[in-house]
């Protein structure tokens, strides 16, 4: 089985995150990581590959210089090889630009042997849009099985279970298919020393837009369907109160809520 797992390089959510004058995420470098939720996608890819045997897991990213760190992490976990789509024209891409580049890269990877499964995380913890997986499935014309809390492949078909706000669902589709997994799907393995050493020898292929046949005008700021017109940090919360319970804190809390007409 050939599995492509999409991984994104994001600013560390524990770090101070901010936006620049242009409204884009400031990437000072140094404090970026593999999007935590993509570790679940990599884990799912590795587990499915191990179960199927004779499989290949390709970690794919679309991102600027430095983003290969996310791919490297996937390789350390056990993915076989990496692909990065890297091109100055990608700067400022919205979800559809990123999808165009990812889809072209998946097709390119499929050129030397069909791809059975495309896996993604449930959301990138920088933008938290969760738009990409469904858009990528549409672009690649693959069955869309998203937000999997459980995923299994058997007899050429994939099955998932997903938990929505109001319902629990199971879905099935023949391969090839696109699956996004949640953090409930598994517990990502931690790369061990052997994995880290092995990853040094694994190849990361860097592709420009021309290599995957994408028109630069269709992606990046040029192709984006949205444009940031302003951004500002939220003003700090004012008049904050911190009390230690002396036996009356519950009453004081109720009074605080009543004063603010919140009860």
């Amino acid at each position: 089985m050939k599995i492509v797992v999409c991984v994104k390089f994001v600013p560390d959510i524990q770090a101070d995150r901010r936006l620049g004058q242009d409204g884009r995420v400031v990437r000072d470098g140094g404090d970026g990581t593999l999007n935590e939720l993509d570790e679940n996608a990599v884990e799912a890819a590795l587990a499915l590959a191990e179960a199927a045997g004779d499989s290949e897991v390709v970690a794919l990213t679309v991102g600027p210089a430095g983003a290969e760190d996310a791919v490297r992490r996937a390789l350390q976990m056990g993915a076989d090889r990496g692909v990065q789509v890297l091109d100055d024209a990608l700067a400022g891409s919205d979800v559809f630009g990123t999808v165009t580049a990812l889809a072209a890269a998946v097709r390119r990877i499929a050129a030397d042997g069909p791809v059975d499964l495309v896996l993604t995380g449930m959301a990138a913890l920088d933008g938290l849009t969760s738009l990409l997986p469904a858009a990528l499935a549409a672009e690649l014309d693959l069955p869309q099985l998203t937000l999997a809390a459980e995923v299994a492949v058997e007899d050429g078909a994939v099955r998932i279970r997903r938990e929505l706000d109001g319902a629990s669902e199971t879905l099935a589709a023949p391969l090839p298919a696109l699956v996004s997994v949640t953090d409930q799907a598994n517990a990502p393995r931690y790369p061990n020393f052997k994995g880290i050493m092995a990853a040094r020898k694994k190849p990361i292929q860097v592709l420009a837009l021309a290599d995957v046949g994408v028109d630069p005008a269709a992606v990046g700021a040029a192709g984006a369907r949205t444009r940031i017109v302003g951004s500002s940090p939220r003003p700090p919360r004012e008049d904050r109160v911190l009390i230690t319970d002396d036996g009356t804190a519950g009453t004081r809390l109720a009074q605080y809520l009543a004063e603010r007409k919140l009860v």
Binding site: R237, D239, R240, V241, L242, I243, T244, D245, G247, T248, A249, G250, T251, R252, L253, A254, Q255, Y256, L257, A258, V263
Partner: peptide, 23 residues
């Protein structure tokens, strides 16, 4: 937090609920 209480939730929450009912 706009309003923080350092305390045991099993003391604070029931007391708050009772005071809201009283108010």
């Amino acid at each position: 937090a706009d309003f923080g209480v350092v305390g045991d939730l099993f003391d604070v929450l029931p007391q708050a609920a009772a005071e809201i009912r009283r108010l």
